[in-house]
């Protein structure tokens, strides 16, 4: 589904990604681990097309198509979803209207009929229920005054509505208590299937208990330092990043 080869990216003229290779197939869950500043979030933003994250080399193919040539909204409409580590507040814009606009744009791009407000309301209420999200939140301004946990649930809710195929979850576990983490992770797992793929960007191993990764990668200084299976995550947890990569001779 996603082929990343030799991806290089700069932020404010500083090279953060120095040649990342990553191959993600349908049905797979990839955990990207690594210390602060190793480039995990930069990788997520570069793939989603955030302005200011300038790709200087390499390529990223999404279903064989050059992802990097597309503006961010077209990447989204083709099924790439980024769950933000810090979801953004948009004062005065009601959550359900905001999401309906994006949802209908996505449907339009696929040649599907748009949903009217009533149809969409039904859809979104159903999804909110499955995430145990207070339905009142979807009538409030986008993320404004939401607690940390509510913001993360709201990201999951948007993902559930947009039904993306490639889900990039940037630190979805940060700022969540154990129960909330479990509920959200289980929700994401429920939305997973043979046609979807997940990239989990995380510091910690604990979320992997709920979202079992098929692949684990350790990102160090802008490159994938090690790749492996579930056991690599445990090794990270036990030994820490420094000793882990020292052991690998990087």
């Amino acid at each position: 589904m996603l082929e990343v080869r030799g991806l290089r990216a700069e932020v404010n003229g500083v090279e953060i990604l120095k040649g990342v290779d990553l191959s993600v197939g349908a049905g797979e869950t990839h955990a990207i681990m690594g210390p602060n500043g190793s480039g995990k979030s930069t990788l997520a933003f570069a793939l989603a097309g955030r302005p200011g994250y300038e790709v200087t080399g390499g390529e990223a193919l999404f279903d064989g198509e050059d992802l990097l040539a597309l503006p961010p909204e077209e990447r989204a409409r083709k099924g790439l979803f980024l769950s933000f580590q810090h979801p953004v507040e948009i004062p005065g814009v009601r959550m359900d209207r905001f999401l309906r606009a994006g949802y209908n744009e996505t449907r339009k791009s696929k040649g599907e009929a748009e949903l009217d407000p009533l149809q969409f309301d039904r859809l979104i209420r159903g999804k909110a229920k499955s995430f145990r999200m207070d339905p009142a939140l979807i009538k409030r301004s986008v993320n404004e005054g939401f607690s940390g946990g509510e913001k993360k649930r709201n990201e999951a809710l948007q993902m559930a509505a947009l039904e993306p195929r490639l889900r990039i979850l940037d630190e979805i576990d940060s700022g969540l208590d154990v129960d909330a983490l479990r509920e959200i992770a289980e929700g994401v797992a429920e939305m997973s299937g043979p046609d979807t793929a997940t990239i989990l960007v995380t510091h910690y191993e604990r979320i992997l208990a709920y979202l079992e990764p098929t692949h684990v990668h350790v990102l160090m200084d802008g490159r994938v330092a090690r790749s492996g299976g579930r056991e690599l995550a445990r090794e990270v947890e036990e030994r820490g990043y420094d000793r882990l990569t020292a052991g690998a001779g990087v």
């Binding site: 989603a48 097309g49 955030r50 302005p51 503006p71 961010p72 909204e73 989204a76 409409r77 979803f81 980024l82 933000f84 979801p87 953004v88 948009i90 004062p91 005065g92 814009v93 905001f98 999401l99 606009a101 994006g102 949802y103 744009e105 996505t106 791009s109 301004s141 986008v142 948007q158 947009l162």
Partner: peptide, 20 residues
Amino acid sequence: FYCQQRGLTREAAQSVIVNG
């Protein structure tokens, strides 16, 4: 960018933010 990530164009995003 947040709006774009949810499928809105840059222009639509500006409109949404200003209208909010």
